[in-house]
Design a protein around this nucleic acid. Sequence first.
DNA 1: CATCAATTTCCTGCTT
DNA 2: AAAGCAGGAAATTGAT
Length: 407
Amino acid sequence: MERRKEGGGNGVRESIARGIREPMSSASELCRILTNANMTIYPTGSSEPLQPQSLQPSLTTVSLPATGDLLQLSDLSTCSSSILAQWYDQNPQYWSKQNVLEWISFYVEGNTFDAGTLSLSCCFMDGPTLCQLTRDQLLNMFGMSLGAQLYQSLVELKAKYDLNETCKLLDNFLHEFPDFPLLSTVEVNEVVKDTSYNDFSHVFKNFNFNNMKPLSDHGYESDSMHSSSSGGMLSFQNPSSPESRSSESDPEFSYPQIAKVHIKTERTERGERGEMMKRGRGRPPKHSQDPRHYQTSKKSKHAPRGTHLWEFIRDILIHPEQNQNQGLMKWEDRHEGVFKFLKSEAVAQLWGQKKKNSSMTYEKLSRAMRYYYKREILDRVDGRRLVYKFGKNSTGWKVEETRLHGM
DNA sequence: CATCAATTTCCTGCTT
DNA sequence: AAAGCAGGAAATTGAT
């Protein structure tokens, strides 16, 4: 969202009037054109029925021509951040054409864009259509500067929506299992086959938590057989885990002595060395060669885009009200973006649930985290176990950012 | 179908 | 000794 301030507005602005490419005198002229176009589409200034209720007030406030007054873009740029935050605080997926027009109008200010590549028709699309556009498409439609800003804005808005999903996941989790011991024991009797699910709340419904039975040793037992690198189950020996050992760990968290995860999948087999193997994502185990596993391993649908690991981690971190109950992670230095895993395996399980991958572990999650160093999404923090730091290519975690976006 | 990005999985070696 | 960390290598998967 910072990018909104860039641009300076010193370049030659060009018109997109009636789809004809002509030089334009000012940003306000463009706004007028957009606004008129808006009125053409929505003569009464009313919104499409699809539009979310919560969007209404801010739209009226910002720029709809309901009164016939043409709003100058300069007016837009002076709107209070709270109003902007409110209006941007919506899932672009649900935007109407009008909303999209509004959004584009806002970013027009201060931009020099290539009129040769922009036509009014570019602005007439609804949210779902907008969300499908790639960065290149936006750049082609709106030029390098404006297009880049629009893309960035869209990415951030999508990310924010994703945050809501993460919160929902954590929320559901806590509601269903208020006393859930660190995700220590999860039994899944049915493999998720229906891939039409693509949000967290549904992910949980695919897990058969109801069948969880206490084990004599604080765990849960399952009649289902299962896989992992050590004898059919993942074992989290909490007392020896770094988070419970570490002198700097929060002492308020108590862990069960032994926590086990029994997860039934269809892709289990025994490897040469006697350990249980399974085929899933990633490199196949050296000793597993059952081709059946390949055909049953396909995921149903596409994982929702924009739900990257670092965003998932970020979303847990910036939602302390959800996080504190489980104490999954904590900030070490909020301003510097330094954070720490308190319950590494629990976070890994949660991530695995999001990705419908029941065999996720911190080991594997951390490998993905290490790949972020090169891309500068994360910066290295040497010598501190389970501690990471957001890098310059990660967004949405800074205090100002989260406040502006109402996170 | 080919390619690519983003993981996922495995592994060896090193450090704490 | 166990748990993490570092990365290389290879495979998977959804998207383009």
